[in-house]
């Protein structure tokens, strides 16, 4: 991952102060805690002066008091379960799971209780789990995962994955205000490498709406999170070869904005889905199926997918670099679909 703003240089900077992606998350949290006394933060090491493994919650305890920023023991299953109870009683807990990899420890509390409750008996469970996800930063199998497909496959959950600082803030605020359990996958490789304009104060980005991040006519690359920036870099390369790529940033993975995807594919006739999570049965499989079902008449080439390998995320750079999609693989795949 290189520094820089990944193709966003042409975006107007006048809409807010420049913030890193991680500062935007902290800003979103603080903004909504100031807005709503029902919002509280809980997780491992989030409290006191420490403020979390990545310092996302630093300063919140001082500003809002220890009662609103609760350190939890290393027990995701019970503290996510406790958030279920808090949410049923009208609070809006924001849970940090330190690393997305550890979310599996809390699985029952998420997929069995939180996800089913409203359907079964009408109880509303408005929490957000902030899950620091994604790799490429040499962190090995248990600090690099992208487990979003588990949750997209679970009825009753919503899943978001911002790719820009502005969306990191705006989607977090919308997720907190949503009356359902929302899993918010924040991308660790973007934390401090990506800076962009972030509106001050009130700023929300609606859930369930993709964004066309780059307009193009020849092929659509659909992605989310850090891979959006790899797609934009590839699009820059391909522009020099006369291939005009449109990039769709999903932003929300559930509910999926299929309309924006299909509209783009109808225009370009070629599509590639990219994600860092392993490819098998990933989000890309679902999107490819939707395109095949709904846009068959528009297609000039098979729908392609690029994803992580079907292995645990390896640690050593030569291994992880092969595991993980990048702009070069994306450019190559776009050339292929454009050769049909």
């Amino acid at each position: 991952m290189t520094d820089g703003n990944f193709g966003f240089a042409d975006q107007p900077a006048s809409t807010g102060h420049q913030k890193t992606y991680i500062e935007a998350i902290s800003d979103g949290l603080a903004t909504e805690m100031a807005n709503d006394p029902n919002v509280l933060v809980l997780g491992e090491d989030v409290g006191g002066s420490f403020g979390g493994a990545f310092n996302v919650t630093k300063g919140l305890a001082e500003r809002f008091g220890d009662r609103r920023v609760l350190n939890m023991p290393m027990t995701e299953l019970s503290f996510i379960g406790a958030a279920n109870g808090m949410a049923l009683m009208g609070l809006r807990p924001v849970i940090e799971v330190q690393f997305a990899d550890f979310i599996s420890t809390g699985f029952d509390s998420i997929v069995q209780f939180a996800a089913t409750t409203h359907y079964r008996w009408g109880g509303s469970v408005p929490w957000v789990i902030r899950a620091p996800s994604d790799g490429g930063i040499r962190s090995g199998p248990f600090h690099s995962q992208n487990p979003e497909a588990w949750f997209v496959h679970t009825p009753g959950l919503k899943v978001v994955a911002p790719s820009t600082p502005a969306d990191a803030k705006g989607l977090l605020i919308s997720a907190i205000r949503d009356n359902n359990p929302v899993i918010y996958f924040e991308s660790k490789p973007l934390y401090r490498s990506l800076k962009g304009p972030v509106p001050e104060g009130e700023h929300s980005v609606p859930l369930g709406m993709a964004a066309v991040t780059r307009q193009g006519t020849d092929a659509t690359v659909i992605s989310y999170g850090a891979m959006v920036h790899q797609a934009l870099a590839a699009a820059g390369t391909l522009a020099g070869e006369g291939i005009d790529v449109e990039v769709v940033d999903l932003r929300t993975l559930k509910p999926l904005d299929t309309a924006t995807v299909l509209e783009s594919v109808a225009k370009t006739g070629r599509s590639l889905v990219v994600h860092a999570a392993n490819r098998l049965a990933g989000i890309g499989a679902e999107i490819a199926a939707v395109i095949a079902e709904e846009a068959f008449e528009s297609l000039d080439a098979p729908v392609m997918r690029i994803g992580g390998l079907d292995t645990p995320v390896p640690f050593s750079p030569p291994l992880e670099d092969v595991y993980r999609p990048d702009q070069h693989g994306i450019a190559e795949a776009v050339r292929r679909i454009c050769s049909y």
Binding site: L77, M86, L88, S109, Q112
Partner: peptide
Amino acid sequence: PQSMPVALGAAMAF
């Protein structure tokens, strides 16, 4: 046992 942390969360909300 899922009811246990949920009840605890309700108690913590109170």
